[in-house]
């Protein structure tokens, strides 16, 4: 039982991460290319993760996924179009800098929302997790 529960919980966390990642992709496609608007998608994606997280492990696992998903999507798109994924992966700063920025932005944003909910909606002082009540309310 415990194992099944653990697996279900893992899948839920992955699901949250990808869900937020897809939101990030959609935002990227919808927003203009100009700075600073393109900084918003990973922040909003991370924010979604933070909001949906029930415990610390939730957002720690899901937030990086939301940051990485747009790049997995890009690699799949390249591959499906016959473009060179190998070169995509060897492009140094051009790929890795946005990836790192997206990753850090998602994680930081998830943490901000998660901790804010903890502070402003109540919860355990020591663990830093959200209030049990809040999680329960979300169902």
């Amino acid at each position: 039982m415990a194992r099944a529960e653990w697996l279900r919980s893992l899948l839920r966390r992955i699901g949250i991460g990808f869900l937020a990642g897809i939101v990030t992709i959609l935002l990227y496609m919808a927003l203009p290319t100009a700075y600073p608007l393109y900084m918003l998608p990973p922040i909003l994606g991370g924010g979604i993760v933070g909001y949906l997280s029930r415990d610390e492990l939730d957002w720690i696992l899901a937030a990086p996924l939301s940051g990485v998903t747009p790049f997995l999507w890009l690699a799949l798109l390249y591959d499906s179009l016959g473009l060179s994924v190998g070169r995509l992966l060897s492009t140094g700063l051009v790929l890795y800098l946005p990836l790192i920025i997206s990753l850090i932005s998602s994680v930081a944003a998830a943490n901000v929302i998660y901790v804010s909910r903890h502070i402003f909606m109540g919860g355990s002082d020591e663990e830093g997790g959200p209030a049990e009540g809040a999680v329960a309310e979300e169902g």
Partner: peptide
């Protein structure tokens, strides 16, 4: 976390090249 986010948002202002490269999906790759 808020400080990190602010730094990340301000980072591209340090260099036009950074600003272009950091644009993840509408940048040079797409």
């Amino acid at each position: 976390s808020v400080v990190i986010l602010i730094l990340i948002i301000l980072l591209p202002t340090q260099s036009p090249l950074l600003e272009r490269i950091m644009n993840p999906l509408n940048g040079p790759l797409t």
